[in-house]
Amino acid sequence: MQNSIVSSTINRFLRVVPFNLLVWALLILYLLPVLSIIVTGMMPTEQLGDTNAPLYPARIKRYTYQGKEYQVYKVPMNDGVKQLAMIEPGALSSLFVDPQDSQTEVIEWTGDWNTLIGVYEFHPTWRNFTVMATSLPFGTMLRNTFLLTLVGEIAVLASSILVAYGFARYKIPGGNLLFYIMIATILIPEKITFIPTFYVYVAILKWNGTVLPVLLHLFFGNAVYIFLLRQNFKGLPIDLEEAAMLDGAGPLRRLFYVILPQSWPVVITVSLLHFFYTWNETRLASIYFGTNPELMPISFGVQNYQSLVPIDNIIQASTVVMLIVPVAVLFLAQKYFMQGLVITGAEK
């Protein structure tokens, strides 16, 4: 008896451990580009062009000699490779001192110093982040993104919830057909609707440089969100609503007091989807806010900045900054988010 428990535990262990190792290996592979930009974002600028430099943020070791800082290199000498600080580089011969022994004389080494490889030390820097932070109006951009998100969320959630409730619980003349039409609108390529709306917004209404072209359509619901919400509302038991109806509760009361309290996961999921969308949106912003930098949201601001700054690690650092908020939100809300989408997937 005892034996079989032990052997089944061992069996389980032998199955679980390799499996989880495999999953984590796959995960690290999948997320490797993210790790790589976090690391590059902390690299000193001079490390980028240096092919001998290690993968982690590093710089060539420094040694102070007679009040000045010099870089330490690996120098091949007669008695083996030594780590020496170069005080005077030269194409034919260079001068070094030995950091181990401050009493020694200056050592002369014959050969091109460019062929020498440096001694690297771990040296992360926040400079890329501070350079970017000081050259971008982060306060204004964050305020803009926050306001766009707030108004957009309220508009799109309120309208989508009402419509989803209508589709889920009411017999509407031609309701099924309308629902299928709504699903079909998800498939319409954006470019076909974009051309006339762009013309009307910019040429006729002169809304260029205002938030209206970016926000207005959100007041009319979003087909994907309506679909997700409707699937969820339909799956709820109808008994409670009928009881509320007998007590004289109207449609809106039933929606607020019966349906919504049971639907938090999917409502949170939809609001998160919209948050991620707004945080990342650059296409509409670049078209309609181009003339008005005051309205620039963080996504377009950072994208714009990246196209102007030629230094790779500052660009990487600004990308890292863009990731902090959505990743934090994803992890704070992971439980609801995973639940919300998984349930809806099962429904369909």
Binding site: R15, V16, F19, N20, V23, W24, L27, Y30, L31, P33, V34, S36, I37, T40, F276, W279, N280, T282, S299, V302, Q303, Q306, D312, I315, Q316, T319, M322, L323, P326, V327, L330, F331, Q334, K335, F337, M338
Partner: peptide, 29 residues
């Protein structure tokens, strides 16, 4: 057999919330 399910699932979801231009940049790098 999967351990720490929620975290692993969220980590696999993570790339989907990275802005398109940032993803492009990361892959280029």
């Amino acid at each position: 057999d999967l351990l720490v399910k929620d975290t692993v699932r969220a980590l696999f979801f993570l790339p989907s919330i990275i802005p398109g231009f940032a993803a492009a940049l990361m892959w280029r790098g």
